[in-house]
Write a protein that binds this DNA or RNA. Structure first.
Lengths: 118, 118
DNA sequence: ATAGCTGCAAATGATTTGCATCTCT
DNA sequence: AGAGATGCAAATCATTTGCAGCTAT
């Protein structure tokens, strides 16, 4: 038995070029109740289909789980969010030397995008 | 003219071993109003005395701005937060090659601390 | 019938804001 | 008096929850 609105919500996240917030999904899918959206987000995250990320805005954003790990460049001026792929192994290697079992990490960058820098 | 409660709030943040939330400050300083706490946090952050960080908990945390850059290891089990100093230049060097003016970045690690790993 | 899904409204938590008051100078 | 600081309550936003009704087996 599948959740009726799951695909619509997932598609909403997948097709967005920026990590999507619950509010945006509710706005784009007016026929889906807010509570349902939150419940589905939780489910999709638990199942590993999507990932929750936070830019410290006071709300969560979600994006499709992707094979290749990537990070975000958040523009403080226009709010655009670019993706970059970085080699983070030098950093993770340092963590491996500690007594800490790493399950997840988040690396975010804030500043001015190319357009707003000029 | 200095804000009456500023020092108490700042001390609260400075003496905490973990990044502090607004709620914790209000609890520790019952004679300071919640609104005042938030207003001071904003001020102190703008002036660069403290830094706002987010662990994606749905609330902000603050810590004293420190000379040496450090990062956090958040334990998903007991909630403890350890500090680590990492050499992040390999990562930042990669950003420097992009058309992006970096003003701030956040790197956080989640998992199990030494105690909870066993 | 019955388990899972959903909507709706109310509850909760974090943060902000309007406004009247108080305090220095 | 006039500016800045503060308290208080109400407002706003994100997220969660209780509950009753709906739907597909």
């Amino acid at each position: 038995m599948l959740a009726k609105h799951r695909d619509a919500i997932l598609k909403c996240i997948t097709t967005s070029d920026e990590p999507t917030s619950a509010r945006e999904i509710v706005k784009k899918l007016p026929f889906v109740n807010r509570a349902t959206v939150y419940r589905e987000l939780l489910y999709l995250e638990e199942k590993g289909f999507i990932q929750k990320i936070s830019f410290g805005e006071g709300k969560a954003r979600y994006e499709k789980t992707s094979e290749k790990c990537h990070h975000h460049l958040v523009c403080n001026n226009c709010g655009s969010i670019e993706h970059v792929q970085l080699n983070e192994s030098p950093l993770l290697d340092q963590i491996k030397r500690l007594h800490f079992t790493l399950t997840k990490h988040s690396i975010e960058f804030f500043g001015l995008c190319n357009t707003c820098s000029n």
